[in-house]
């Protein structure tokens, strides 16, 4: 009986070994994105903007056109691309510092303008590439190299809840928070990515998928502990689920609509 191939590398994923740490969520997110490109058959029209941060080298893995952006400016660069090429599928891939700290203005206003782009937001509660400093999404009490006593609301303030915040902006159409810490959550993340890209193809405006992602190295945990920490701690600060999803019929009537 001939063997049947049931699992392989997505065609949109380059044949290159990931530089990410063992147990890092970026590799999973990359793979999910590439599967989505394949399934929607958009590899040839996708243009991505990777962030400054651990995923800065995303163009070494995603086999689509990409352009580097300054730290936090991804949604501005993506705006420029999308406005000139409205029929391409344009996405930014951003970390928590990139989106919610240095680039909050660019992200917020791209969302508010209802730019027809997809934002994939990797939240791992620390600054990974620079060595585990506090992020805007570092959880309360979490120790990092710049919050050695644990994050406190008096000194550092509360973690930024990006999905909740952006849901209030009328330019946004679909916002969901997912995680890549369990097989079930990974499948949900894949669906969310597909939905976001499909919404863009349908010209429905700004969509954002937040992905809670393990960073065992900077959390100083094993990969298994890190996945568990997402369930036990992170999801308490950042509840999973669909924060906003405007049905297309309602959008057509002009409620919270992005008119393209």
């Amino acid at each position: 009986m001939p063997m049947k191939k049931i699992f392989s590398k997505p065609a949109s994923l380059k044949d290159a070994p990931f530089h990410y740490c063992p147990g890092c969520g970026h590799s999973i997110a990359h793979r999910l994105l590439c599967e989505a490109f394949d399934e929607l058959d958009i590899r040839g029209i996708a243009i991505g903007v990777p962030p400054a941060g651990c995923a800065v080298l995303a163009y070494n893995y995603l086999d689509v056109d990409m352009i580097e952006s300054a730290h936090g400016r991804g949604p501005a660069v993506a705006t420029g691309i999308k406005r000139m090429l409205p029929d391409r599928v344009v996405f930014s891939y951003q970390g928590d510092g990139d989106l919610a700290a240095i680039g909050i203005a660019e992200s917020f206003h791209a969302a508010n303008r209802g730019e027809n782009i997809s934002v994939f937001f990797i939240n791992n509660a620390v600054y990974g590439m620079t060595g585990g400093q506090m992020a805007p999404t570092t959880t309360m009490g979490q120790r990092t190299t710049t919050s050695p006593l644990g994050r406190s609301k008096e000194l550092e303030g509360h973690p930024v809840q990006v999905c909740e915040l952006f849901s209030h902006l009328r330019g946004t159409t679909y916002i969901e928070r997912c995680a890549v810490n369990t097989p079930a959550n990974i499948l949900k993340t894949k669906k969310a990515i597909l939905k976001s890209l499909q919404y863009q193809i349908d010209k429905r405006g700004f969509t954002l998928v937040e992905i809670l992602s393990p960073c065992p190295t900077n959390w100083k945990m094993s990969p298994v502990e890190a996945c568990k920490w997402i369930s036990d701690v992170m999801t308490k600060e950042f509840p999973l689920g669909v924060m906003k999803d405007i049905p297309s019929a309602q959008q057509k009537k002009g409620v919270d609509a992005h008119e393209q």
Partner: peptide
């Protein structure tokens, strides 16, 4: 744009196309 920074980065995106 929301800022000068955003403006020049939008230009980067548009010009890259």
């Amino acid at each position: 744009s929301e800022s000068e920074i955003a403006a020049v980065n939008m230009v980067e995106g548009a010009a890259s196309t």
